[in-house]
């Protein structure tokens, strides 16, 4: 029987098998990069909004509490986007002729909603509840970043499942005293030796975990049900 392949095919086949591994790894790596890039995750990307609302100005400039507008964050799964009437509690008197606010005034006149663009939107198969996180002492800043330093709103975290689970496995670093939940300031780091202190020694984070009765919740059905 005659040979089908030339002997040089031995080398070529080895080289192409070897090369294919790199090509596949390359393609895989490229796709991984795309999925992790801010192009897909929207991290740090400003979404266009009908009104150039500045959280920076309203939060750090004026000192308005998150809950003044996001009224249902403590009692409901949804933090709440304020109705136009909330904007008008101040803007009926302030900046009344600013062209930037014409959309707000028009919405108030006509009763039509302002079509805000949602920045933090989880997939529909993940059920997130603001109220329980706030009640347990997870600060706004842990998920939304320094909103008080955002002139326009962007996503600070990927909202990937991996990122959720990281905290669900180890909530300790994100737990705040309840009166600091709505503060944007970083938590003071516990003194270094405290972490390795002898058993029974006081540890701020662990005390809070106990006081707020926090357990690591990693069962699938906690979020997917």
């Amino acid at each position: 029987m005659p040979q089908i392949f030339h002997p040089s095919m031995n080398t070529i086949s080895r080289a192409s098998i070897f090369g294919a591994a790199f090509i596949l790894a390359g393609v895989g790596g490229f796709i991984w990069l795309i999925f992790r890039s801010s192009y897909t995750t929207q991290v740090g990307v400003v979404r266009p909004q009908p009104v150039e609302f500045s959280h920076e100005h309203h939060v750090s400039g004026l000192g308005i509490d998150c809950r003044y507008c996001h009224t249902s964050v403590e009692t409901s799964s949804f933090a709440g986007i304020p109705p136009t009437a909330t904007c008008m509690t101040c803007h009926s008197q302030i900046w009344t002729d600013s062209p930037k606010l014409e959309v707000v005034r028009a919405s108030y006149r006509t009763g039509e909603s302002i079509p805000w663009t949602r920045v933090h939107d989880l997939p529909d198969f993940a059920y997130f509840d603001h109220s329980i996180h706030v009640a347990k002492g997870v600060g706004c800043v842990s998920c939304h970043g320094r909103v008080d330093e955002m002139p326009l709103m962007w996503r600070a975290k990927t909202l990937h499942m991996e990122w959720c689970v990281d905290c669900h496995r180890n909530p300790e670093p994100h737990i705040r005293p309840r009166d600091k939940v709505f503060s944007m300031e970083p938590l003071p780091a516990p003194p270094a030796p405290e972490r390795d202190a002898e058993p029974g020694a006081s540890n701020v984070a662990i005390d809070l975990m106990q006081a707020h009765q926090i357990a690591s919740e990693t069962n699938c059905s906690v979020c997917h049900h």
């Binding site: 799964s77 949804f78 986007i81 039509e112 909603s113 529909d124």
Partner: peptide, 21 residues
Amino acid sequence: DMYDQPRLEPLEKNAFFDDGR
């Protein structure tokens, strides 16, 4: 279709009603 399931999130836009709410 798993990401955007046929259920409405709070304040989600919906064409069924004239005002989109």
